[in-house]
Design a protein around this nucleic acid. Structure first.
Length: 588
RNA sequence: GGAACCAUGGUGUAGAUGGUUAACAUGCCAGCCUGUCACGCUGGAGAUCGCGGGUUCGAGUCCCGUCGGUUCCGCCA
């Protein structure tokens, strides 16, 4: 008998009745009835029940069947038969049929796995990561990895259809200032020198535009040596795109078509187009974040004017110093929250950077720690702005605008989750436009690029670059889905003098700019086309569409929270010989 | 760099106030069972409670430290 499969487990149904098939797969589960033995055989396509019956098999073969255990690898040959009346399993795709084995081979035996290979496991993740190849046998993870493939495949087709070229860019490249910490690779040929792994192919894709390829994309691996989160891995994959002779609209329109095609392919749902757009300023003012989750309300309101002359010194002083007072209305929470829960909100606000959180519990009277400092008119005015009803809880933060907005934005998210205001079946896409080009970094005592140093400013804002850098708007756009940043991009600077102005605004001396980016500035002098692009986080996209909570679940071999590969044992030490070749001495 | 939480047979958990034999489920092994599909029944093996100190007559339990894991803050242009 040849052990090679003729069919896949999951494909079998009544239409294969009476056919003889050969299946290859793993023992998912065994049910031994003494007489007859049932085995659920699993391959990539699904699971089918196979039957070992002493009426068909000789004694020796049946004895072999009795040895079967979970995760044994089999090749079985037999006939597909309709299950007896009343024995169908409606919970199984192949539940109408079963395969009566007439001969089989054990291709591989298996030790008992360290955790069950089941659809839903609740097992310590480090154990799952150590035996990743077993975890990946679980249908839930297989689904995610297969979905990832389908999405990438669709994206490649999309770009092909629209005249893009997929071009690879180097993994061994050069460390550049700005941005995340680089992963670094020592050079053997150049003692004391190092490559850096790309944080993104940014410069290369711009150079490809200068080279005249006009439309580029890449499913690109990127590396950032920063601390990890559930949605952050040290290496991750971007759908990286760049186009020549375009304006923001061209890119946003084409890219939302691509993302929505993928979205519809996976979910079967459609959303109205064009996708809604919101300026950065509006997002910050209304939602306190640059990636608003618009699936629920709880929007921020500005009550600065109402409290500017307040008898509560904190309010009055904040306004006097150019700050704002903003608030949200946690509807019903005045009634439902305990004092402890309210205190928790205050603590949270402080954690997020506020100096305090003022609350108003709207009951028969308005209860608040600051009620005695405020006039009735002021309280009424706030209540009106926040549309307060009895039972509501009003939360106010007075601070510089950015702080007040961000703190309330986070409280809004916290409350949205806590109060279960979020409809998980809803998918709210949103473009955020008109970003600031630069933001002031208090630690560095200078402006840093909000996006990256190659983002083009609004034409009419260019002159502000030297006088009021914080006011310059950028031709940048981010696509947000349900409060998660899917991707972002911009139109790029393509003129040397503007790029130099940008570096200057970032605090580079001409010498530094020349040293770090001289090759790039030089390239602009040989005929650079206007160009722009975007990059999407593939892992996050797949995670959201797969309904997973962590990108680890859609990456075949992810690293843990400390950036270790628990299966391979990476990172690991290298030999003295290797170190010597690299001219590296390790401090103890 | 900081914070919170977790750690008990292979796996998932229970073990108020410290007390003598560490419990339950599942998995595993053996036997029985010819229609199960989370098969069932009977029996069995399997943990010095992450590690190191300390308090105590006595520590899975309390204290200190440490390793590991997860999540969050900082960080991630």
């Amino acid at each position: 008998m040849s052990w090679k499969r003729t069919h896949n487990c999951g494909q079998l149904d009544l239409s294969y009745k009476e056919q003889r098939v050969v299946l290859n797969g793993w023992v998912n589960r065994r049910r031994d009835h003494g007489g007859v033995i049932f085995v659920d055989l699993r391959d990539r396509s699904g699971i089918v029940q196979i039957v070992f019956s002493p009426e068909i098999l000789d004694t020796e073969t049946f004895a072999k069947a009795e040895r079967l255990r979970s995760e044994f690898v089999l090749s079985v040959a037999g006939k597909v038969l309709a299950r007896p009346e009343g024995q169908q399993n409606p919970n199984m795709a192949t539940g109408e049929i079963e395969v009566y084995v007439d001969s089989f081979e054990i291709l591989s035996e298996a030790k008992t796995p360290p955790f069950p290979i089941e659809r839903h496991v609740d097992v310590d993740e480090s154990l799952r990561l150590r035996y990743r190849y077993l975890d990946l046998r679980r249908q839930e993870l297989q689904k995610g990895i297969i979905l990832r493939h389908k999405i990438i495949h669709h994206i490649r087709n999309f770009f092909e259809k629209h005249g893009f070229l997929e071009i690879e860019t180097p993994i061994l490249t050069k460390s550049t200032p700005e941005g995340a910490r680089d992963y670094v690779v020592p050079s053997r040929v150049h003692p004391g020198e190092f490559y850096a792994l790309p944080q993104s192919p940014q410069l290369f894709k711009q150079l490809l535009m200068i080279a005249g390829f006009e439309r580029y994309y890449q499913i690109a691996r990127c590396f950032r040596d920063e601390d990890l989160r559930a949605d952050r891995q040290p290496e991750f994959t971007q759908i990286d795109v760049e186009m020549s002779f375009v304006e923001p609209d061209d890119i946003m329109q084409l890219m939302e078509t691509m993302i929505l095609e993928v979205f519809t392919m996976v979910t079967g749902k459609t959303v109205p187009t064009p996708l809604p757009r919101m300026t950065y300023a509006e997002a910050m003012a209304r939602f306190g974040t640059d990636r608003p989750d618009t699936r629920f309300g709880l929007e921020l309101q500005d009550v600065t004017a109402d409290l500017a002359n307040s008898g509560f010194k904190v309010f009055a002083d904040t306004v006097k110093n150019g700050g704002v007072i903003k608030g949200i209305n946690a509807q019903g929470c005045g009634e439902s929250f305990s004092r402890r829960e309210i205190d928790q909100l205050v603590e949270l606000a402080m954690d997020y950077g506020a100096k305090g959180l003022v609350w108003f519990n709207i009951a028969d009277t308005v209860k608040s720690p600051v009620a005695k400092f405020l006039s009735e008119a002021e309280i009424n005015s706030i209540m009106e702005k926040l549309q307060a009803k009895p039972g509501d809880l009003l939360l106010l933060v007075a601070d510089q605008e950015v702080v007040a907005c961000e703190v309330l934005g986070r409280l809004r998210l916290f409350l949205g989750n806590k109060l279960d205001l979020i409809d998980e079946d809803q998918f709210n896409f949103l473009w955020i436009t008109d970003w600031p080009l630069l933001v002031y970094d208090e630690d560095e005592q200078r402006y840093v690029a909000a996006h990256h140093p190659f983002t083009a400013p609004f034409d009419e804002d260019i002159e502000l670059l030297a006088t009021a850098p914080g006011k310059v708007r950028a031709k940048a756009y981010d696509l947000v889905l349900n409060g998660v940043e899917l991707g972002g991009g911009s139109i790029r600077i393509y003129q040397r003098d503007l790029q130099e102005k940008m570096f200057k605004a970032l605090g580079f001396t001409m010498e530094e700019a020349q040293q770090q980016f001289g090759f790039f500035l030089e390239a602009f002098e040989y005929g650079a086309p206007p160009h722009g692009g975007i990059a999407f986080g593939l892992d996050r996209l797949v995670m959201l569409l797969a309904g997973q909570k962590s990108i680890r679940d859609v990456i075949a071999f992810p690293k843990n929270a400390s950036a270790s590969d628990l299966m391979m044992g990476a990172p690991g030490e290298i030999s003295k010989k290797q170190l010597a070749e690299l001219y590296i001495q390790v401090k103890s």
